[in-house]
Amino acid sequence: MPAHPLARAALAVAATGVAGVGYAAGIERNAFALREVTLAVLAPGSSSIKVLHVSDLHMTPGQRRKQQWVRELDRLDPDLVVNTGDNLAHRRAVPSVVQALDPLLARPGLFVFGSNDYFAPTPKNPAHYLTARHTRVHGVPLPWADLRAAFSERGWLDATHTRHRLEVGGVRIAVIGVDDPHLQRERMATVAGAAPEDAELRLALTHSPEPRVLDVFAADGYDLVLAGHTHGGQLCIPLLGAVVTNCELDRSRAKGPSRWGAHTWLHVSAGLGTSPYAPVRFACRPEASLLTLVAAPAGSRPAPVVVGERGIPVGGGSGVG
């Protein structure tokens, strides 16, 4: 007897769902991409510099494909590397993160940490992200201090609640950062205040791009804020974008550059990983970003040039992504 039309339709929907989950879990979450953006944020007359923005690795020891891909990013020859946190997803992942970032640790670098540097992920009902703005179920503590020591010993600067001055590529940079606002660990009073006027780039770092933090950075005159945390929405609707950001940031800013106020640019990385308990990506490839920062013409506020996404071939990496 022929199947009822409704039964055939139900089977088709179920098959499509299974295929979608298979694609999101087996293909797209390993389809690492490079986002390239040009931003005119430097003081007029400054030399251009390349900043590699890496975030949300959520590394576990067996993710050799991801580790190899991250190592290959050194071929981009960035002037500065910025890591905006959530490097860990396993208590034994510190060596894997350090090995993946090893070539980049030889370059000037800055970092702040996120919640998944401090606490391991735990199983959660994904529906909670649709009904609650904040999900803070802490797993076991992670060895974030070991990771901090490894980064610092190689010369990267911890920007957490600290002001730094450095020069890269002939550009004078003033930097501040805060601990993860998603855990309400930011202490804005430690870094608040007018950004230095003599810097050619005023840069602020945070893991979670919470508007209450972004408002302070913008009011203090910072040119560029780098953040992660959102995973770009992780599960997106084609042509519509992110469904949630897992923070107070509006969905239209879930990844890439956007203006925050009259002067400040915000760049949110969609990140390179996922929780081990939600290993899927859909319409939102895992990414790192290469930001080419150029001088702003005097008296103008040009829009960013988004070059787009492209894959980077890896040199022989294998294993679970």
Rank of each mutant, 00 (worst) to 15 (best):
D215Y: 03
R253I: 01
C236D: 12
P209K: 00
L239C: 12
F217A: 13
A204N: 10
V213S: 04
K255I: 00
T230V: 09
W260H: 11
D220T: 10
D223W: 12
L214T: 05
P211C: 12
H229W: 11
G233A: 07
A199C: 13
H207K: 08
L224I: 14
W265I: 07
N246H: 13
L203T: 13
P209L: 01
V213W: 05
L201H: 13
V243K: 03
A262K: 12
A242G: 08
L224G: 11
L201G: 14
L205V: 13
A204G: 14
R253P: 01
L203F: 15
D198G: 14
T264N: 04
L226T: 04
G273F: 06
T274N: 03
G228Y: 05
V268I: 08
A254I: 05
L205F: 14
P211V: 09
G232H: 06
L266T: 02
Y277I: 05
T264E: 01
S258K: 00
A227I: 07
K255F: 12
T274Q: 00
H267T: 00
R259S: 15
A270Y: 02
E197M: 13
A219R: 10
V268F: 02
L266E: 03
D215C: 07
L266C: 08
W265A: 05
H229R: 07
G273W: 06
A254T: 01
S275V: 08
T230A: 06
G256A: 11
H263N: 14
P209R: 00
T264H: 02
H207P: 08
V244P: 08
V268L: 05
G221L: 12
D215N: 13
P257N: 08
R259F: 13
G273D: 06
S269A: 09
T245K: 06
E248A: 14
E210Y: 08
H267F: 15
P279G: 04
G273L: 09
P276W: 03
P276E: 03
F217W: 15
D223P: 13
Y222L: 13
I237W: 13
T230M: 06
C236S: 13
L239T: 15
L272K: 00
S208C: 15
